[in-house]
Amino acid sequence: MKTDIILCGVGGQGILSIATVIGEAATRAGLQLKQAEVHGMSQRGGDVQSNLRLSTTDIWSDLIPKGSADLIISMEPMEALRYVQYLAPDGAIVTSSAPLVNIPDYPDKDAVLAELRKYPHTVILDIEEAARKAGNPRGANMVLLGAASKYLDIVGRERLEAAIATVFAAKGEEIVNANINAFRYDLESE
């Protein structure tokens, strides 16, 4: 069994902490893992992505081949579209609905969302609003991870929650609980 994930967004949105949590959960599940990150210049407000591959068997390439990603998790709607050629035909997209407009030629927001809805399994979520409602305005990325967790059976929700506790342990119990609440938000709102 394998799950290939593309995490994406704009530099500074915190996609790497999502990757860290999934990575920790995958390690607990005894899975093989490879995670290619982008460091350096793009982190300054440019498009960023991370290829995260989880598998019960050996993983060779650090990068996901085209047409084979099971899941795109995106902090920004247009950025989700940037990687669709990597998505398997029945793959899922879980994305924030909020455009980050830091370029002059950002396309029409509704057109972007309409395009995203054409894919068979798309979840579009106002993660900023959800994070505020969950009482953790800085936990938007954990809301997104919570929404994506239904496509992450390979690790399971319990392991993801345990991983959040481990990854944020150094920041104290309050932050851990706030992030777990944000993570659970989507499930409870359904």
């Binding site: 704009v10 530099g11 210049m41 793009s42 982190q43 300054r44 407000g45 440019g46 498009d47 390439s61 990068l63 996901i64 081949p65 085209k66 047409g67 084979s68 247009m78 950025e79 579209l81 940037r82 669709v84 050629q85 990597y86 998505l87 398997a88 035909p89 793959g91 830091n102 370029i103 030629d105 950002y106 396309p107 395009e115 894919y119």
Partner: peptide
Amino acid sequence: DPDNVAAALGKPSAEGCKAQALSNRPPQL
């Protein structure tokens, strides 16, 4: 990358979704 090496080995790439033409988002100060 896995795709250009697969092509050189004569292996067809998996059938994926069509790429989208999107605005570039270069890094900035």
